[in-house]
Design a protein around this nucleic acid. Structure first.
Lengths: 210, 210
DNA sequence: GTCTATATACAGATAGAC
DNA sequence: GTCTATCTGTATATAGAC
């Protein structure tokens, strides 16, 4: 019985939730500096005093937002991993899922923010790397090791290096263009680019005997 | 004779040069928002009024700085291209030159700034892409076409796609880690990563007959 | 062109009532 | 916890003398 009262730990306060939601929207849209605490309070429908009662300051609020997104990204990565591991044509499927996620406006927005503020919040940039690209690379390394044991990949390849290469091939031109503000490519363009990248990867890393 | 007076067009004003130098340093170190016009004036050793006499405002000053760096990057790209075209082991040499330039703290700083401000200054982000990654890819595409005509690359490869793939392989893990604040890797690490990337590229794109 | 001094606005953060 | 009202610093930008 007493454990029941511990369950809704996430829904501590509706005001706090409103603050987090509004601040997330504003930070992702405008970056760190352009967002004022006044704007967050107004957008969340609370007073500034309430805002400061929940978060000790602007930096703490920002850290909470970005840290939360990192956790979300980590969950998302596990979810994608679960799907990709069970699918055939695993590399293509995984590549499409990853690139679609990566190029989404919200993902791009958090990339830009973390990159922009990595001098002011180095620990956030580190946490973001670990939760995002780092976790993806670690998972992909293990996945490629498995493929290697199955004889689908060259035996002399370093799976960690190969994982970095596959991610680089997948990002390719699309990532750099999109992070610099170009409109996100449509699904067909993404799928085509992923197929090309996977084809090139397998030409370089596929087992010669296969 | 009259043409002589037109020559020193670049050295119009020492104060202006001091402003540009100070502003470049400050913007590259701190981004757009954290730099105040007071700080620029103080650091340049001029008054704010003088600052505003040379630049209509903070946005114009920022645009002048970043636009200037774009022009510099474009020049630098041509310079690197001239060297790489004449060298043997062209891909390795070019890759090392490009990655060394890309991972330099100053290059990373301008990457972060342009990415951070691509919502506020979309035309700057576009100019940066054209001067940097876009120009590099265009040049590399032509270079790969030439290699293809010489029979060094697969005949069925699209040189533009291949150029994007080579750049993606080169960037690989190093770029994303460094742009997220990790310390720049040393020359040996860069050289090793470039060699691996080029090796993989040639396994996928090298002419089968060769 | 260059300076000193200032106008004007808004930022982050808090005091005190309820 | 939540509000209204406010303190304090600093930002961009300008006025007017030289």
């Amino acid at each position: 019985m007493s454990s029941l009262s511990l369950l809704p730990a996430a829904e501590v306060s509706p005001k706090r939730a409103a603050i987090l939601e509004a601040a997330t929207r504003l930070f992702l849209a405008g970056g760190y500096a352009t967002v004022s605490m006044d704007a967050v309070a107004r957008e969340a429908g609370v007073s500034k005093a309430t805002l400061y009662a929940h978060f000790t300051g602007k930096e703490a609020l920002f850290a909470a937002i970005v840290g939360g997104r990192c956790a979300e990204i980590a969950e998302r990565a596990e979810e994608m991993a679960a799907h990709a591991a069970s699918a055939e044509g695993a590399l293509r499927g995984m590549g499409r899922a990853w690139m679609t996620f990566l190029l989404k406006p919200e993902t791009m927005a958090i990339h830009r923010i973390v990159i922009a503020e990595c001098a002011r919040f180095p620990e956030l940039a580190c946490a973001f790397y670990e939760a995002g690209p780092g976790a993806g690379r670690t998972w992909l390394t293990h996945r490629l090791e498995k493929e290697q044991r199955l004889g689908h990949l060259r035996a002399d390849a370093d799976p960690g290096v190969a994982a970095g290469h596959l991610m680089g091939l997948l990002r390719g031109e699309l990532y750099i263009r999109t992070v610099l503000g170009a409109p996100a490519p449509d699904d067909d363009a993404v799928a085509g680019a992923v197929d090309q990248a996977v084809e090139v990867f397998l030409r370089a890393y596929g087992a010669p005997a296969a």
